[in-house]
Computed example of a mutant assay.
Amino acid sequence: MGKKKNINSNDLITFYMDYVLEHNHNPKTVYAFAKANNFEEQKFYEFFSSFKSIEKHIFKAFYDNTYNALERNDDYHSFDARHKLLSFYFTFFENLTANRSYVIYALENHKNSLKGLQLLSELKHAFINYIGGLEIELIDVKQAQIDKIQRRGLKESAWLQLLITLKFWMDDTSSSFEKTDIFIEKSINTSFDILDVAPMKSIIDFGKFIFKEKIQM
C-alpha cells in the first residue's frame, strides 16, 4: 500500500491524539509515528518540528476552532464584551469536552501547576490577544503608562481565570459538566461586575458556590 500523500496539520493532530489514547504514551520517534499511520516521515516536519510542538498546537487548535465558530455566528458580533467572553467560554469548553480523554491525558499530571505550563503557551498567546480585542472598559486614569499596566493585568488575570476554570472542569464529575457551566457564568459575571463596580450580590453568590464545591470535593 502506498504512503498517504495528502496529509495536513489537522490529520497529524488526529493521528497523534488517537495514538496516545490508544497506547497511553507518546510515540517513541517520528519515524515510528509516521510508519504507524502510513505516511512519509518528512510530511510531519512540514508542519511540526517535534512532538512537543504538536502538543502545543493541539491546545491552540481548540482555541482556533472556538474562535472560528464564534466568528461565523452573526449574533456573536452584536454582543457586548461580557457576552462575547461568555460565548467564548461555553464554546471552548464544548470543544474540550469533545476531546476530554486527550485533555485529561495531557494535563492530569500538571493540573495543579497549569500557570507556567509550556504546553499551553500557544493557547495563552492566542487567548490574551483575544481578550485585548474585546476592548473591555477599564477605569480611565488619563495616564498612558498606568493604562498599559491595567491592560496587561487584565490579560494576565483573564488567563488565570481560564486556567482556574480548566482545572474546575477537569475535576467536575457532574452530569454533562453542568457545574462547570454554572462556574463559568458566575465567574465571568463576577469579573465584569468587579470591573463595573457593580453591586456585590453576584460576588457573594459566586463565593458561596465555590465554598460549597470545595467542601464537597
Rank of each mutant, 00 (worst) to 15 (best):
L123W: 15
K43Q: 13
T29E: 05
Q216Y: 10
A98Y: 14
I7L: 08
L134C: 09
G116C: 04
F183K: 15
E178W: 03
G153L: 04
Y63A: 03
A144N: 12
I215A: 07
Y63W: 11
Y67N: 08
F44I: 05
L114A: 01
E46C: 12
F211W: 04
S202A: 00
K115P: 01
T91H: 10
T97K: 11
L96H: 12
V141Q: 07
R82G: 03
A106G: 06
S187Y: 03
K28T: 07
T165F: 04
S78T: 11
D205N: 09
M217K: 09
F93N: 06
Y19G: 01
L163F: 08
I188Q: 01
L119A: 04
D74F: 05
F209W: 12
F93Q: 03
Q161S: 10
D181L: 06
L96M: 13
N37R: 06
Y31I: 01
S50A: 02
V20E: 06
K208E: 09
A98L: 12
F39S: 00
S174P: 05
M17W: 02
T165W: 07
V197Y: 10
Y67P: 00
L195I: 07
Y89V: 00
F59L: 02
F47M: 06
T173R: 11
E213Q: 08
F209L: 02
H57N: 13
V103G: 09
L195W: 09
D147N: 15
G116H: 14
A34N: 11
D11E: 09
F59S: 00
T29L: 06
D64Q: 08
L120A: 05
Y19F: 13
S175K: 14
A98D: 15
E71M: 13
Q42C: 01
A158P: 07
A61Y: 13
Y105T: 00
I136Q: 14
I104M: 07
D147E: 15
E55N: 10
F90V: 01
K167I: 00
Y105E: 02
H77K: 15
A98R: 13
F183A: 04
I182A: 08
F59K: 00
D196Q: 13
F15M: 01
S202I: 11
I203E: 10
N38L: 06
I58H: 02
F93V: 02
N112C: 08
L154A: 05
A144H: 14
K43H: 14
Q216S: 13
R72H: 11
K84G: 03
E94L: 04
A61P: 00
M170F: 11
E185Y: 07
A36Y: 10
L163H: 05
I104R: 11
L117V: 03
E55H: 06
L162D: 12
G132T: 02
K43G: 01
I7P: 12
T190E: 08
D196F: 06
